[in-house]
């Protein structure tokens, strides 16, 4: 298997506040991996640095053999690494269809945009029903669907989803997870951040626990720990 993504010794943060203290992780072609861990410990910072929104202070990011450390976000998307942001509100005054079409504006998304639009509509029929509705009037679940739909319009070779079911009702969570599993079945490599470890275990081959800006542990599905052990990782042994 070839390495699709390789993050080595990544340090990053916001002006004077370092958040990541040397993250190492990798993803092989055709693989899905999950990230979990307490809030505020650097998962989103890590994803922003990988996507080029933040410049790393140290370390490197290689995508498909190419060094993309500190590259422009647009160049990273053009290479095929696409991220759907957490809690995404996208563009409040833009319609659903308008936004999806715009997502195919980059050089990578342009060819075959119509086919991909049909695929996104098949995956999320609600987006097809709400074509002309403005993003700000969508429900949280629909916005998330639009956000994932937009990422798919970029024709990703690696799709990053940052807490795609955050704050949704259990029914909508289930619906979105089914869609994400469907995307994985189609063979799109995924990095998914989620708090629900069981969902991640079902979806991905490996899990990373990100804690205090470091990878505290990597879990292979083959020797996955039981529920109690994972809860211990989250809250510390003494919490029980």
């Amino acid at each position: 298997m070839t390495r699709l993504l390789e993050v080595t010794g990544l340090h990053a943060g916001y002006s004077a506040v370092p958040v990541l203290h040397g993250i190492d992780l990798h993803l092989d072609a055709g693989e899905a991996i999950g990230l979990f861990g307490p809030n505020g410990h650097g998962k989103t910072t890590l994803l922003h640095t990988v996507s080029g929104l933040l410049k790393p202070t140290k370390g490197s990011v290689r995508f498909d053999g190419q060094d993309i450390t500190g590259a422009k976000p647009s160049a990273i998307v053009a290479a095929g690494l696409v991220q759907a942001q957490q809690g995404n509100t996208l563009f409040g005054d833009m319609g659903v269809q308008e936004t999806l079409e715009l997502a195919a504006f980059n050089p990578r998304g342009r060819s075959g945009a119509q086919t991909r639009l049909d695929e996104v509509h098949a995956l999320f029929p609600r987006l097809a029903e709400r074509r002309r509705q403005r993003a700000r009037t969508l429900s949280g679940g629909e916005r998330q669907m639009l956000s994932i739909g937009c990422a798919l319009m970029c024709n990703p070779r690696l799709l990053i989803l940052d807490e795609p079911t955050l704050g949704l009702s259990p029914r909508l969570k289930g619906e979105l997870r089914e869609a994400i599993a469907e995307i994985a079945r189609k063979g799109v490599p995924l990095i998914v951040v989620e708090q629900d470890v069981e969902f991640l275990l079902a979806l991905s081959s490996r899990l990373y626990l990100v804690e205090q800006g470091e990878v505290a542990r990597m879990i292979d599905r083959a020797d996955a720990p039981d529920h109690k052990e994972i809860m211990d990782m989250y809250f510390g042994e003494q919490a029980h």
């Binding site: 996507s51 080029g52 929104l53 976000p73 647009s74 998307v77 053009a78 696409v82 991220q83 759907a84 942001q85 995404n88 509100t89 996208l90 563009f91 409040g92 005054d93 833009m94 308008e98 936004t99 079409e101 715009l102 997502a103 195919a104 504006f105 980059n106 050089p107 990578r108 998304g109 937009c150 990422a151 319009m153 970029c154």
Partner: peptide, 21 residues
């Protein structure tokens, strides 16, 4: 699309960047 990208950047800069704009 190029005109819409102006509006997109105005409304949400980081989301626009993550769509490759």
């Amino acid at each position: 699309l190029s005109g819409r990208s102006l509006r997109a950047v105005g409304q949400n800069r980081s989301a626009a960047a993550l769509l490759g704009i």
